[in-house]
Structures are given as C-alpha cells and as structure tokens.
C-alpha cells in the first residue's frame, strides 16, 4: 500500500473513533451539567466561608484593604471602632452586597472578614459586641432600623462602648 493510501486508511479509522469520543464527551458533559448544576449550589460555592479560614469574634481584627476603584461611585465605607483603640476600616463595592440594606452590608463585611453578624429582636451583634453598647450611624444619622436602605457612596460607622460626646468628637473632625 502506498504512503498516501496508508495515511488515508489510518485517518479514516482515527476520525471514526474520534467522532465517537467527541459525541460521548458532548453528551456526557451535558448530562453532568443538567444533573448537578443549580444556582443555589453555585451561590453556596461562592459565598461559603472556608473551614480553613480563621474565624474571629473581634470585628476590628481585620479590614478590607484598598479601595474598590472599579466600582466608581457604587461603594459604601464601613468603619468599626471597638473602644479599645482598635478599628476596622473598609471600602466595599456595593455590587457585591446583594442585600442593599445596612444589615446586608454588615453581614457581607462579617462574611469577608470572618466575624459573625446577627440582627435579632432589634439587637445588632458584630462578633462579641452587641447593642445597646454597639451603636451604628449611616451618614452620621443614628441607625435604628438596620433594614434601612444603604446610601450609595455613604458611610456606615459603628462604635462600641463610646459615649455620645466621644462619637460627636469624630463628627466634629
């Protein structure tokens, strides 16, 4: 058999097997996706905090460093002052905060930085700190209802164990 004939025979056989493999792969992938994919599973995969990551009860232990430049004006600043001289300063991209309320932003911050956030019976818990000693303000207005909508490009500040006159000093500055 000449080289070209041998080549033709080989390629024909190869392509027959290849097409079978490709079809099997195509339907196999489709089946795997249809059987296993859901938006809930995807959400869980993206938002779940790893067991490998350290958790903390101190909301001032970590900050989100840097500014979300890509967000342009769609951001919120969140500051937490813990009363022992420590603080957490964060600029958050609002596009990543799915629940656009004050508590939604705090929950997302807690998830990223690794502390628990709870809002029960009108009481706020940020890690080991809770109201009434924990007071939060949005754009310098006291937050009574944490279901209040976020003010875009605004600031949320939470103070733990600060007297009103001490908080006032911050706003004078």
């Amino acid at each position: 058999m000449s080289t070209w004939k041998e080549t033709k025979v080989f390629l024909t056989r190869y392509l027959e097997i290849y097409i079978l493999v490709a079809v099997f792969m195509f339907f196999g992938l489709k089946w795997h996706k249809n059987k296993n994919y859901s938006t809930e599973k995807l959400e869980e995969m993206m938002v779940s905090v790893s067991d490998l990551r350290d958790k903390t009860d101190d909301p001032c232990k970590y900050s989100i460093l840097g500014d979300p430049v890509a967000a342009k004006f769609d951001y919120i600043k969140v500051f937490i002052f813990c009363g022992d001289g420590t603080k957490s300063t964060n600029s958050m991209d609002l596009r990543a905060v799915k629940e656009k309320t004050v508590i939604g932003a705090l929950r997302e911050l807690g998830r990223v930085n690794g502390f628990e956030v709870k809002y029960e019976d009108n009481r706020l818990f940020l890690g080991k700190y809770s109201s009434p000693d924990l007071k939060c303000f949005q754009n310098q207005k006291f937050v009574n209802d944490f279901g209040t909508d976020i003010k875009v490009s605004g600031t949320i500040e939470c103070y733990y164990n600060f007297l009103p006159k001490e908080i006032a000093v911050f706003y004078e500055k």
Binding site: D93, R95, E108
Partner: peptide, 25 residues
Amino acid sequence: TDNRYINVDRIYQGMANGNTLQMNY
C-alpha cells in the same frame, strides 16, 4: 458578570487591593 468578595487566603487583607472579583459563568 457577578461581582463577589471571595476571601480565599485572606486576599482582601492583602493583595486584592479592595476590588471585587468579576466572576463570569
């Protein structure tokens, strides 16, 4: 395009520079 904070290796306390991840699928 789904903007997300995925704080693997605590990159938001380091190299991520504050920008969210643009997740695409």
